[in-house]
Design a protein around this nucleic acid. Structure first.
Length: 572
RNA sequence: GCGCCCGUAGCUCAAUCGGAUAGAGCAUCAGACUUCUAAUCUGGCGGUUGGAGGUUCGAGUCCUCCCGGGCGCGCCA
């Protein structure tokens, strides 16, 4: 009988054992298995799972240590040993069974895959046309792309949308600025650079010349008129030029989208949204503008949907986008990977939809992240204080090239790996932090390739590849292995076995750093194994088993890095 | 002024939605390459978890107040 035939759950790695334990506990305690959450003990000696018995003991009128001891004696879980330690009931998977299960699962290309039936929309990236992508866009892009891949791995149908900032009053300003100071040759040479310069100049000069603001407003009105006029042609041109630039950066970051739909994509629907709100009797005029009052939803600030000048606003277009997405995709969840500072906006968005009677309003979820700050203060595009994303990636790539040349002079493709290592370092540095916390940008940290970094994971992966290359043969088939040879290598096995749970948690909590952190622990265990266990040249059954362990490590690291969007070169 | 978020080792961060002795990396000090990549590994140093109360079997985590920082608060996105 193989381990897999014991489980029909389809769960991989340690999740399969966890399921067994919870099932057995549920039966003995007479509670639903869903209510039982197992802890992971901190100390390795306490096994893989634990149940603190305080609550159950209280419910049964017993003392926790007593109950723990009794449960330990009564529970029968195949391949799992239950032991009471004080008030805790600890579970330890038998070494051979652990090795068998983990090797079998961790060698699969779909390790950790789930079969869920959910539709998830992930909106991310979303740079503003005519402005260069800066370090702030890195966060949205990298977190969003990772979440999309993670959710896909869990079986979700994922729709990736790049919600470009390509509409609104700012484009009126840009058109007005172009009419005054625009230069063809400079636009050709460096589109975004020139457009940004125009934008900055507009704001500078508008402080002395208030008439400029009026010209900007008029230009946006021309744009929103729907007519095929000069303003529209300019806007279209700026958009195309910008998109071409963005694509290069998205490619480098490994981010792809199912739909590139800017705010302008919903232009046709804007009148419909306003009419719809009116039909629900939600529209009221206030100080010349049109608003939806949100006091009934407990939000003091009303949602502005139309300016006194008759133009639409961010909220109008986001309402249109939400309604359009609901009609088109009937999503189970719609994730917006957008900075913390827009919290109120998304609360308003949900509140308006709730007031309008959309029962799906709460499927809208703001996946917020902290902003990137410099030690000297906040970034500001208008003030020209920006750190371009391209510059960060370039510098990381250049530094990586120096290091590749130094450490691996014979590498066949130094530029190629350097780009993978440099960009991988930048991506991983971002993803290893909890997404909601602000980050202070520090070149030294971002460009570090030692310790808990992307290159550390890549290096561990590359070492595995080197062993497999030198073995000169494929990883032996699982059926031919004697997994019990690895029974003592628990650190590596449990780290591998926990990968599926890490992916699941990262997806469910919309927190890629959970996966990032787990990969670091896995690489740690992997490097310890590398240090302690010789693979090549051992007697055949041992070499086979260890080769399989290295294969499983390579596969799992490769999968995890892939989900995060960090390249995994085979040598570096 | 009001609201939300955050304060953990010198620095950057963890701590499994309240569980066991608060852990990593960087920096620093001391070690390990004739053996599968030393971008690695081993060990040392480093803590009143911003402060004061409270809740309970148990608090870095929850509640109150204070201090410090960030963000937001109607015609930008």
């Amino acid at each position: 009988m193989t381990a897999s035939s014991l489980d029909s759950s389809g769960l991989h790695g340690l999740e399969a054992f966890e399921e067994r334990i919870r099932g057995a506990l549920a039966e003995v305690l007479g509670v639903p298995a869903e209510d039982l959450a197992l802890d992971r003990p901190r100390q390795a000696g306490h096994g893989e799972f634990a149940l603190p018995c305080f609550q159950a003991a209280q419910a049964a009128g017993r003392k926790p240590p007593e109950l723990a001891a009794e449960l330990a004696a009564r529970l029968q879980v195949p391949e799992v040993e239950a032991r009471a330690v004080g008030p805790f009931l600890n579970f330890r998977v038998e070494g051979a069974a652990l090795a068998r299960r983990v090797l079998q699962d961790a060698l699969r290309p779909d390790f950790g895959r789930r079969r869920r039936t959910r539709t998830s929309i992930v909106e991310f990236g979303s740079p503003n046309i005519a402005k260069p992508m800066h370090v702030g866009h890195l966060r949205s892009t990298v977190i969003g792309a990772a979440l999309a891949r993670i959710l896909e791995h869990l079986g979700h149908r994922v729709v990736r949308i790049n919600h470009l900032g390509d509409w609104g009053a700012q484009f009126g300003k840009l058109v007005a600025a172009w009419r005054r100071w625009g230069q063809e040759d400079r636009l050709e040479a460096d589109p975004i650079g020139h457009l940004l310069a125009l934008y900055v100049r507009f704001h500078e000069e508008a402080e002395e010349n208030p008439g400029l603001e009026e010209q900007g407003r008029q230009a946006f009105q021309e744009l929103e008129s729907g007519e095929d006029n000069e303003a529209r042609r300019l806007w279209q041109r700026f958009t195309e030029l910008s998109l071409r630039e963005f694509q290069k950066t998205f490619d480098r970051l490994g981010a792809r989208f199912d739909h590139v739909r800017g705010e302008s994509w919903y232009e046709d629907r804007l009148p419909g949204v306003l009419a719809w709100l009116e039909g629900k009797d939600l529209l009221q005029q206030s100080e010349g503008a049109w608003i939806v009052d949100l006091e009934p939803e407990g939000i003091q600030t009303p949602c502005l949907v139309k300016t006194a000048h008759g133009t639409t606003l961010y909220a109008t277009r986001d309402l249109a986008a939400a309604l359009s997405r609901w009609e088109e995709f009937a999503f189970d969840e719609c994730l917006y990977v957008v900075g913390n500072e827009q919290k109120l906006h998304f609360e308003q968005l949900r509140a308006v939809l709730r007031r309008a009677g959309c029962d799906w309003a709460d499927r809208i979820e703001h996946v917020a992240f902290g902003l990137v700050r410099f030690a000297e203060g906040k970034l500001s595009t208008r003030k020209g204080r920006v750190l371009l994303l391209k510059e960060v990636l370039d510098r990381a790539s250049e530094l990586a090239l120096e290091i590749v040349r130094e450490k691996n002079p014979g590498h066949p493709d130094p530029e190629g790996v350097a780009e993978q290592v440099g960009v991988g370092a930048v991506i991983f540095h971002d993803l290893k932090h909890q997404r909601t916390k602000d980050v202070v940008f520090d070149w030294k940290e971002v460009l570090s390739f030692d310790g808990d970094t992307g290159p550390y994971l890549q290096y561990t992966h590359a070492r595995c590849c080197a062993i497999l290359r030198k073995a000169g043969r494929p990883v032996p088939d699982f059926a031919a292995l004697r997994p019990e040879i690895l029974a003592e290598d628990r650190e590596l096995l449990t780290a591998l076995g926990r990968f599926p749970a890490a992916v699941r948690e990262a997806g469910d909590r919309r927190e890629p750093s959970i996966l990032a952190g787990h990969l670091l622990r896995l690489a740690n265990a992997g490097n310890a194994f590398y240090r302690d266990r010789r693979v090549l040249g051992e007697e055949p059954p041992v070499e086979d088993a260890r080769l399989a362990a290295i294969g499983a490590l390579r596969n799992t690291l490769g999968l995890g890095l892939g989900l995060l969007g960090v390249p995994a070169p085979e040598s570096m």
